[in-house]
Amino acid sequence: MAVGRITRFNMTSLALGLAFLYLPIVILIIYSFNASRLVNVWGGWSLRWYHEFFGDRAMLDAAWMSLSVGAVSATLATLLGTLAAIGLARGERFRGRALFSGMLYSPLVMPEVISGLSLLLLFVALNAERGFWTVTIAHTTLTMCFVTVVVQSRLTSLDRSLEEAAMDLGCDPLRAFLLVTLPQIVTAIVAGWMLAFILSLDDVVIASFTTGPGSATLPIRIYSEVRLGVKPEINAICTLVIGLIAVIIVIASFASKLSSTRGESAAPF
């Protein structure tokens, strides 16, 4: 595209688009510091709702559940997703490849009600006790597909002659991968982990289907509160979650700058 020409139309559409994306979040964050119980009345700045959250045992349990499900499932998903990406990007043609890539790409758009329901029916059939592990497995299944896409697109954009050069200089395939390929895709893998963690932290539907009684995740709790109406405490929790995600993004972009090679950083698609 022609670069550098900023027409008024371009600028306006961009500015409006970004305002549309950000304003609601900014408003939510501001209102989380509202002292008043009434949402429409500004009662001055206060940390009252944060105190309330940290005194709310059930909410804290849910938050802990979400964080641990997120961490474990993101790690599993990163491992499996990276392996899958290697298989797709370097495996050439093999039997069952179309099925494999189909299984990995379709969960990206599959309606969550379907994924959730089908996984629950599997867990019931396997007679598995529903709770932490069932949610973790469900989230791993969903998020590893995102990891695969991120890592695979990085792998396919890599110059294959780097691997050949490594072999030429005495590496067997495994060492060529570890010493030359892996350092090039590390940012994509990290981005994949974060994406998986955040998606897990975000999910209501699949978690609702696959969790058992007494082990609700934070989004499930938020969701049931939200259905009853707006509560200032929810504003505070949401702000905390946004803050956590912001920290993760900042760390990640910092890390990717540190290990920056010329290659483009991985986009989430």
Partner: peptide, 20 residues
Amino acid sequence: VLPHERPVNMMFQNYALFPH
């Protein structure tokens, strides 16, 4: 014989330097 076991080396057209 596999490339990593040959006493032969190659200089690549695009150099293939390891960027990291």
